[in-house]
Design a protein around this nucleic acid. Sequence first.
DNA 1: AAGTGGTCTAGACCACCGT
DNA 2: CGGTGGTCTAGACCACTTT
Lengths: 241, 241
Amino acid sequence: MSDGLAPAPLYARVERIITGRIADRTWPPGHMLPSETELAAELGVSQGTVRRALDALYRRHVVERRQGRGTFVAQHTSERALFHFFHLTDLDGGKMAPTSRVLRLAREPATATEAQRLGLKTGAAVIRIVRVRLLRGESRVAETITLPAARFRGFHLPVGEEMQDELYVHYQRHHGVSVARAEDALAAEAASAEAAHLLGVTAGAPLLRVERVACDLSGDPVEWRVSLVDTAALRYRVLLE
Amino acid sequence: MSDGLAPAPLYARVERIITGRIADRTWPPGHMLPSETELAAELGVSQGTVRRALDALYRRHVVERRQGRGTFVAQHTSERALFHFFHLTDLDGGKMAPTSRVLRLAREPATATEAQRLGLKTGAAVIRIVRVRLLRGESRVAETITLPAARFRGFHLPVGEEMQDELYVHYQRHHGVSVARAEDALAAEAASAEAAHLLGVTAGAPLLRVERVACDLSGDPVEWRVSLVDTAALRYRVLLE
DNA sequence: AAGTGGTCTAGACCACCGT
DNA sequence: CGGTGGTCTAGACCACTTT
């Protein structure tokens, strides 16, 4: 519980302790946490203080709580990934579940940009994935994804075939990597020849470019992706409040 | 405190009561609320329950709380508007305060689209504003804003001159309209001749199109805007968590 | 019936702000 | 100093889930 500087409130320290145990997989995804009473006794604080910390983690989607059952480390499900990390809808705001087709998957040295975004040294090994995502059966998104190879040993995906699009579930299940936070940076750009070919649009057509850095619970970057979206029939939606 | 259906938790009812008094301007922006103790006594609940409601309102930016001073109805400041409702940054994520120049301001009948977005009848009177927003002195955003005239009587802005860009502050100060929530829908599109002219790009250049509906505390739409952004040197940033 | 989270209360004590 | 919000505790009672 050493803190270096200012003495943080108790509930904040409790929150960090619990977060730490989740991040280091003492309590892996899906695991049931000790009850509020047990945690309070173990940490030497009142139940109310533990509750306050757990409520904060619940609001951040780090744990799930169900009355009568217990508190569980949040697991990525397709629904959760879709809801929190997929912001494309049809023109009326209707949700759609995408599928995807991997075109290329290789282990290669990182470019300067990739290394910078992922906090690696240039030339460090990365997994690079090129894929197309389909919405209502149509190719709408061309995507390049870069992963630090050190955290994704033995990474593989079926290449060439259409599959359910559950990459974050895959990261968690097969590599113990839970995406907790991401930042998207959006711009408009003209379609390159390749992008145009992949998406079935004319070269030079306006595309939405989405660059994302995704981080785990500890705040370390674990994924860098560039998505090119044909927004003829799609919208990227953002709620501000 | 009548509730029609299920008996909501006390703290939720307290939250709604307080929200109501803010929405109907019993407590206008900047006003100091009664202390937790007073509210608890008035509403016949414990201080802890009032606190829980106020904490929720604080997280939603509806009130501001300062230790030793009191709880105040949130006021739109340029900083808050910039932080919550302005998502454009430079390429490195650096924040910038925009200025703006109004090109046209008129009271006109609503188009079908405008009426639909604002929950009005087609042909209802709206204020329509066309303006350009400048970042670091360069025209980067061309914007059309539509307001329901009924809620913005006597609306005026200086036309033609460069000014501080504080529209939401203006709505609140001069028309008692507080924007509490907004939804943006983004797409890429090719620049029209007018947009190209306003932004100093070539016609057909890719622009980021941002459509926004902004709502007040009661959830009623109060503004509809379409922004066309030259993203050559800008990014629209979104934090997901 | 036993165990879990969810709500609500009452009260102590601290930190901060204004006068 | 008195008043405000911020933290922390202790305990009662309820609603839900599982055995």
